[in-house]
Amino acid sequence: MNWQAERRPSHIVAVFERQPFWGPELQRQFKQSSVEVRECRVVGDLLPTIEEFPSALIFIDLESGLEECLSWLRSELRVHPHPCPVIACGAATATDLAWVLREAGVTALLAEFVPGEKLARLCRRQLGLQPRPVR
């Protein structure tokens, strides 16, 4: 048995965004933890990305494609339901469509910019993990 075998993460955060921003920030926040962060440039890649993990969270950036995100939430997520929380962000869009997004399955909605540390705490809560102390 190889005692140096890599530890497989037990949690995943799949991030949909067109340009890297939240993905790299969450990777930095979850460095050296049991949470893996994977970036998706196509919203249809989210469910295949999380299917192997017992604990998952989906983060979607509405500004990367509002119509695409809404369509995916309404169709794909309902056809292939996955019992994982979905966090959506997108300033003005989020507040205007809050009820539509929640009805479509979004569990947390960020209508304004939040620092990476605060987003990581929200992800930990949504994944059922204890947040680390803030220094």
Rank of each mutant, 00 (worst) to 15 (best):
W3P: 06
W3C: 03
Q4A: 11
E6H: 06
R7G: 00
R8H: 12
R8E: 14
P9K: 11
P9A: 14
S10F: 00
H11L: 00
H11N: 15
I12P: 04
I12A: 05
V13K: 02
A14W: 01
A14H: 05
V15Q: 07
F16C: 05
R18M: 10
R18W: 02
P20W: 03
F21E: 12
G23T: 01
G23W: 00
G23H: 01
P24D: 08
P24M: 07
P24E: 05
E25Q: 14
L26N: 10
L26Y: 06
R28P: 00
R28N: 10
F30T: 07
K31Q: 12
Q32Y: 08
S33P: 04
S33W: 01
V35P: 02
V35S: 03
E36V: 09
V37Y: 05
R38N: 03
E39F: 01
C40W: 01
R41Q: 12
G44T: 10
D45N: 12
L46T: 03
P48E: 08
P48K: 09
T49F: 00
E52T: 07
P54W: 01
S55H: 14
A56P: 01
I58Y: 01
F59L: 15
F59Q: 09
I60V: 15
L62T: 03
L62G: 04
E63L: 13
G65S: 07
G65I: 00
L73E: 09
R74E: 13
E76R: 11
L77C: 08
R78V: 01
H80I: 13
P85K: 05
P85V: 01
V86W: 04
I87P: 04
A88E: 09
C89G: 05
C89D: 12
A92L: 14
A92H: 13
T93L: 15
A94E: 10
A94H: 05
D96Y: 07
D96E: 15
A98P: 03
W99K: 13
W99A: 12
E103G: 10
G105A: 06
G105W: 04
A108V: 13
A108S: 13
L109H: 10
A111E: 15
A111T: 14
E112Q: 13
F113E: 14
V114I: 15
P115F: 11
G116C: 05
A120W: 06
R121C: 11
L122I: 15
C123R: 06
R124F: 00
R124V: 01
L127S: 07
G128L: 03
G128S: 03
Q130T: 15
P131R: 10
P133L: 10
P133F: 02
P133V: 13
R135K: 06
